[in-house]
Amino acid sequence: MRIGGHITSTLEFPGHMSIVFFTAGCNLLCSYCHNPELIDVDGGEDIPLKELYRIIQDSSDFIDAVVITGGEPLLQSDDAKKLLECCHDYDLKTKLDTNGCYPKKLKKIIDVVDYVALDVKAPFDAYKEIIGDDVGDLVKKSMELCYDSDCFLECRTTYVPSLMNPEDMEKIAKEITCDLYTIQQFRNRTVLDEKLQNTPNTTRKELLKIANKIKPFLDNVKIKTGEFGDEIIK
């Protein structure tokens, strides 16, 4: 499996200590990508699944979850499924982060996933305009698949003021169905497009204003900032 590294984290799977595997390769070129080193498959190294199983086994006494993120993990969906199946052998919870572009692959793996974090990068009909790829319909299908399954579904959007406006966020809120919607802070320190380094980081105040405006449309809304972490909107 092509892996760009792994860490132990208490943040990536809320409420759980997890090992996080970063897969290499992504089909999108989002200008604000915060892991641009993982876009190219050459950003990782081939690690045999047996070695990844060993890492999980050696860590199983002090973790209770495994997260597969990227890049885009579903580019390696067969190996990702095998890795997640291994997790269940050790009674570990599983989480998958995905951009939602591969609903058919997601359907084949969803039965071994407990938690999906789905990036909703724009209103479904505005993907081409905002991120340059007309994949909104595919993301919508992935969302519907997850919501109809037994897994917990978090939809999340990074709010980039130079690419989006509060009206876009309200439109997303009216279009999505999920267990939790997270609005993430844009941070300009690491981005794919260097022009965005001149875009100021979004502030907690900005995100709170948007979150309170969309709260009537969704049961559970959260904002996430570097300064204050996760904050549930009451």
Rank of each mutant, 00 (worst) to 15 (best):
T190N: 14
R204V: 03
D137S: 13
T182E: 08
I176M: 13
S149H: 04
D219G: 00
D219T: 05
N188C: 12
I223V: 03
Y181A: 03
R156E: 00
D134Q: 11
E170I: 12
C155W: 02
K224N: 04
V135T: 14
N212R: 11
C146P: 08
D137R: 08
D119W: 11
I183L: 15
I214P: 01
S142P: 11
N212G: 05
T182G: 03
M169D: 01
T225H: 00
K222T: 04
G226W: 08
K195W: 00
S149A: 12
S142D: 03
N188T: 08
T177H: 15
L180P: 02
I183E: 00
S149E: 08
E167R: 06
I210A: 02
A173D: 10
K121R: 14
K174G: 11
K171Q: 13
K174V: 11
I131C: 14
G136H: 13
I176G: 05
E175C: 09
T199G: 02
L153I: 07
E154C: 10
S149Y: 11
K215V: 04
N220T: 10
N201V: 00
L207D: 00
E154N: 10
Y147A: 14
N201L: 01
L218P: 00
Q184Y: 03
Y127A: 10
P200S: 06
G132L: 05
D134W: 13
Q184P: 05
D168Y: 15
K215L: 07
E167H: 04
R187W: 09
